[in-house]
Amino acid sequence: MHIADGVLPTSIIFTTYALSSAGIAYSLRKINPEDLPKIAVVTASFFVASLIHLPLGPTSVHLLLPGLMGVLLGPAAAFLSVVVGLVLQSILFQFGGLTALGANSLMIGVPAFLCGLLFLRFQGSTLRSNVAGAAIAGGLGTVLAALILAGLLYTSGESFFRVAQLALVAHIPVALIEAVVSAATVSFIFRVKPEMLYWSRTLLYTNDAAR
């Protein structure tokens, strides 16, 4: 769920803008500038993937994908990718308000960053460990995003408490779907093009070696 304009109070708007700017600056320093065009191309495929709706009972949900972005791109690149995707979603589709861009970037970007770190740490080299890592990242990414959303609404005032609770509950089925889809995606990539699952390491390590 993207936060629209007019919900968050001014102080939160400026704080989240400042925090996500800091996140962008940090991520840009961590990544080799030569890799940015490649990350942009993969970001486009994530953008298209996030427009896909899956049926859930009588309604349908669309995927948030923070976990999968962290898994495939690694922490820093995933954060940049989230910001670029959200700017375009806001300008093109109005998914997420312009003034809530900072808040939305944190809501999806921070889980993507953390899932990226987690997956780098526990990835292993077997199909089973990769799939398990992806399932955990997919579920955890969505749960973290929902927690950040609820936290932002909580800080916005007493009138939003119940809305925040309902938003948390509504994300439970999405987290389950996301875990299964992420596991299936990584299982497919592991069998078809395994080197893609280790691409995120080269995005980080070439830069560290150069320094």
């Binding site: 065009p37 490649k38 486009a44 993937a49 896909i52 889809v181 497919f188 078809v192 093009k193």
Partner: peptide, 23 residues
Amino acid sequence: MRITGNFLGMLFIRSYERTEHVY
């Protein structure tokens, strides 16, 4: 969900294979 996962996997692999050519 499994089929969607395969679908996404194919989409990502195609974009990944394109990155080198594009660059």
